[in-house]
């Protein structure tokens, strides 16, 4: 009895009212805890503030020029006035065509790699290549596009060549993000399918894709912003400083035409043309940003829609 009393973790000599009091160590831990929380919060705010600042500053600076005609008019007087229609339409063409190429190839390749391919040296090399290609600077893709599409394939400097260059640039990232989305679908679902005799394709079509489609779309949409914003890959392969087209005509460009692009136009009027009114580049930037945000918003709507349907 007496020994058990002395080794008891709750010695009777202690006044119950003093139990559970803060010790010096606890005080220090509480301080560290607060500090950590504050640090993380600060970093989050640091990330948000510049974004808000940039967007509001852009809109403030661009306000005098923003109107529907700014989007639908050709630039005039050496790009010192008028609108940005050819650049706006050019960007839509470039981004649209590049995604039309890279999204299906990327998604299907990722499905193969994740659902069909066995782990062996061949798939390991492909995976390694995908990861490394995703990290190649865009100017390198530009040179590749110039050599492969413009010169070797004989497409010349054209929307097609520029779009394909952008597609090559976005492809590895789409593969990587799609693979990640597919990998997030629990294996248990696949096992359930296999064991009632579903083929791999039935498993993919009925279970894997419906459960990963939102992740896949997110990956693709992120590449819209990237393709729309890049200047280097299109500069060598199909984008021009200036080209007037029919106002408001969405079929004004052909596949083998050269085109303007928003990112390139922004670069040009900011650095290459003297005496451009200040609002013009800001207006261009707002339209570029707005287009990307609009596409993102559409993608979110599409995702919500697809998720709400149980089958598709």
């Amino acid at each position: 009895m007496s020994t058990s009393a002395t080794t008891s973790p709750n010695p009777v000599t202690l006044d119950p009212q003093t139990r559970f009091r803060e010790t010096a160590l606890v005080r220090r831990k509480k301080f560290t805890e607060k500090l950590a929380r504050l640090t993380f919060l600060t970093m989050t705010l640091l990330m948000i503030f510049p974004l808000l600042l940039i967007v509001s500053y852009l809109i403030y600076k661009a306000a005098p020029i923003l109107s529907i005609n700014f989007i639908l008019d050709n630039p005039v007087r050496g790009m010192r006035a008028g609108g940005i229609w050819p650049a706006f339409l050019g960007t839509l063409y470039l981004v649209g065509i590049s995604l039309l190429v890279s999204a299906p190839i990327g998604v299907l390749a990722a499905v193969y790699l994740n659902e069909y391919a066995r782990e062996n040296w061949f798939t390991r090399i492909i995976n390694l290549a995908v990861v490394n290609l995703a990290g190649v600077p865009s100017i390198v893709h530009a040179l590749f596009g110039l050599g492969a599409f413009v010169l070797f394939a004989g497409m010349g400097r054209s929307i097609l060549a520029a779009s394909l260059t952008l597609a090559i640039m976005t492809l590895p990232v789409i593969i990587a993000s799609t693979k990640e989305a597919l990998g997030a679908v629990p294996t248990a679902f696949r096992e359930a399918c296999w064991n009632v005799g579903a083929t791999r394709w039935q498993t993919i079509r009925r279970i894997v894709l419906p459960n990963s489609i939102s992740g896949i779309l997110t990956g693709i949409i992120l590449q819209v912003s990237r393709a729309a914003g890049e200047t280097a890959p299109i500069m060598f392969t199909g984008a021009v400083f200036f080209k007037a087209i029919e106002k408001g005509d969405i079929f004004a460009y052909g596949l083998f035409d050269q085109s303007m692009a928003l990112s390139m136009h922004l670069f040009t009027i900011s650095t290459q043309v003297p005496n451009v009114p200040e609002a013009l580049p800001y207006g261009t930037a707002v339209v570029l940003l707005g287009t990307v945000l609009l596409v993102n918003a559409l993608a979110i709507v599409l995702r919500v829609y697809l998720r709400s349907r149980k089958k598709w």
Binding site: A188, F189, E191, A192, C193, I207, K310
Partner: peptide, 11 residues
Amino acid sequence: MVFQRPNPLPI
């Protein structure tokens, strides 16, 4: 086959 963890499909 029936598995250790119940694996109904997400439908």
